[in-house]
């Protein structure tokens, strides 16, 4: 029996490393190829690091980067303003609405972005009319796209604390509802809010479908456009964007692990 267990452990180790090496090669190889490809022209990386020269040489790319950063910041803000008070409020005062709020928040998961664009086109005709065609107006659509992920993060945060008791304690001490939300509940779900914001930033920085089909610019649209004229540069920017997303999401998963361990 002991011999069997040892033999199986050895077999499993061999299997594990075989799978990891084969699939690891498949996943790492494109990244190495990107490094090789983007260093064929030795000027590419120094140029990418030099912002003034970059924005002069590739104005479209610079505009895309600026637009994406603005969209990421504003989408996080709008998502938080819209979702956090509503989620807390529904939990405290309108528990019967929770299912419908949840349904609406998770609905974008079953609607592909390309389908959403088809429906958004007429809505954006009105947005253009009232607010103009700035690429920052994409924030409205992006807030919908990130709803499922942000809602799950915030809802998990709210489930892990006793919102009702906290709110009742604060109310009985004379706090207004704004104080309850802003100064009592919000500080208690800080890590959930932070992870929702992280996910939002990562998703917005990677978004292409809606921006390109509504004729606005962002990082991905700029990379796609750049690919038609300067392949080396576009691969370098892709790699940089990818590494940034890696860093963001790895930070998030490490952060998420730590807060999960703390609450245990």
């Amino acid at each position: 029996m002991a011999g069997l267990v040892v033999r199986r452990a050895r077999r499993q180790r061999a299997f594990r490393w075989a799978v990891l090496v084969v699939l690891g090669t498949f996943f790492v190889f494109p990244l190495i190829a990107m490094i090789e490809f983007s260093t064929r022209d030795s000027q590419t990386w120094p140029l990418l690091a030099d912002w003034p020269r970059l924005s002069e040489t590739y104005p479209d790319l610079a505009a895309g980067i600026v637009a994406s950063l603005g969209q990421a910041a504003l989408t996080s803000l709008l998502m938080l303003v819209l979702l956090v008070p509503t989620a807390i409020w529904v939990r405290l005062r309108l528990p019967r609405l929770r299912r419908i709020v949840e349904f609406l928040c998770l609905l974008p998961l079953t609607i592909p972005a390309i389908v959403l664009v088809v429906g958004l086109a007429p809505v954006y005709a009105w947005v253009n009319y009232f607010l103009g065609g700035s690429s920052l107006t994409l924030v409205f659509a992006y807030t919908i796209l990130v709803l499922p992920y942000a809602y799950r993060a915030i809802d998990a945060g709210l489930s892990s604390i006793d919102v009702r008791t906290l709110a009742e304690a604060a109310r009985s001490l004379g706090a207004s509802w704004t104080t309850v939300i802003w100064r009592v509940v919000l500080p208690n779900i800080r890590s959930a809010v932070l992870s929702a914001a992280f996910l939002t930033v990562a998703l917005v920085l990677g978004e292409f479908t809606i921006a390109s089909l509504l004729h606005r610019t962002n990082l991905q649209v700029a990379i796609d456009y750049l690919g038609k004229s300067s392949a080396t540069m576009s691969v370098a920017v892709s790699l940089a964007a990818l590494l940034l997303a890696f860093a963001l999401l790895l930070l998030l998963s490490l952060f998420g692990n730590r807060s999960a361990r703390e609450s245990r």
């Binding site: 990107m34 490809f37 690919g227 691969v235 790895l250």
Partner: peptide, 19 residues
Amino acid sequence: CGVLAQFGGVTLAFAFLAT
């Protein structure tokens, strides 16, 4: 895996173009 599952779109296309 959490990172790569989110990784799609233009950057992925260029990764394979470079490969």
